[in-house]
């Protein structure tokens, strides 16, 4: 009994570890001030949802976490984003290495025009994660298993990834993202192009993934945020208006703007 209690307490303490810490982050697209002085601490091995109306800055902020905004010339990021205490915008940080640690899944499933196997093997290969073919096979199988799609594709690994259904393609993309053994998974509206069954499968997967990864998900579906996340941040006009436990945000939010948004009173 004592051991169980101790384990529970330890787990609870550990889940409060901060994986990503943003301090005073501002993002500009040219003259547009898209993110305004955002402070946010994202818990390790938990699912954090970003919600807010279109154009509120939630996807912009998500893309800062693995420096996807670097590819946009007019985009300027100031402030600090720390991954386990390390500034990800430091000169010494290689964005490609960073993106291996912080994987991303996009709104529309975007498998490479290659076989299912190659889609998953690509990342580990370029990052040199496998010493030989047997190891690579193992990584591919484990990644597809974790993405809850192995049983559906194990007999057609060498057929094109683009031949799968939308929901399967998205799970393949999640498998591809976790093949480089990332610590964080960023998901930008991962279910918006999926039917309800595929959505339920991806949500089930997200719930499994949080045992091993820190997941940050942007979603327009309030119910999805409520279902899959433990923490929720509400973005509005570039600010984080409210950030806290998902249960609290959806039953009794502190800020009237949060309440207006989640109850469908402001768009």
């Amino acid at each position: 009994m004592l051991d169980t209690t101790q384990t529970l307490l330890t787990e609870r303490t550990m889940s409060k570890d901060i994986k990503i810490s943003a301090k005073g982050v501002d993002v500009f697209y040219g003259d547009t001030h898209a993110i305004k002085n955002v402070d946010l601490e994202i818990e390790n091995k938990a699912v954090t949802a970003f919600i807010g109306p279109s154009g509120c800055g939630k996807s912009t902020f998500l893309r800062c976490i693995n420096r996807m905004n670097d590819t946009i010339d007019i985009c300027r990021v100031t402030g600090d984003i720390l991954l386990e205490g390390q500034d990800i915008y430091a000169k010494s940080v290689d964005p490609v290495q960073l993106r291996a640690r912080v994987g991303m899944v996009f709104q529309k499933p975007n498998p490479f025009p290659k076989s299912i196997y190659d889609n998953v093997a690509y990342g580990p290969t370029i990052h040199g994660l496998a010493k030989n073919k047997a190891e690579l096979d193992e990584i591919v199988e484990q990644s597809l298993r974790r993405a809850a799609i192995w049983d559906e594709v194990k007999d057609r690994l060498h057929q094109p990834g683009t031949g799968l259904s939308g929901g399967q393609q998205q799970r393949l993309c999640i498998g591809r993202a976790i093949a480089t053994a990332p610590e964080v998974l960023l998901m930008d509206e991962p279910c918006s192009a999926l039917d309800p069954i595929a959505t339920a499968q991806v949500e089930e997967l997200i719930d499994d993934l949080r045992q091993n990864y820190t997941v940050v998900i942007v979603t327009h579906s309030m119910q999805q945020a409520a279902r899959v996340s433990q923490k929720t941040a509400f973005f509005h006009l570039g600010n984080v208006v409210e950030y806290g436990d998902t249960n609290k945000i959806f039953t009794n939010p502190e800020d009237s703007r949060t309440e207006s948004y989640i109850t469908g009173r402001i768009g």
Partner: peptide
């Protein structure tokens, strides 16, 4: 409607 917050209460 899947009510939340004040609507749920």
């Amino acid at each position: 409607r899947a009510p939340t917050a004040g609507d749920l209460r």
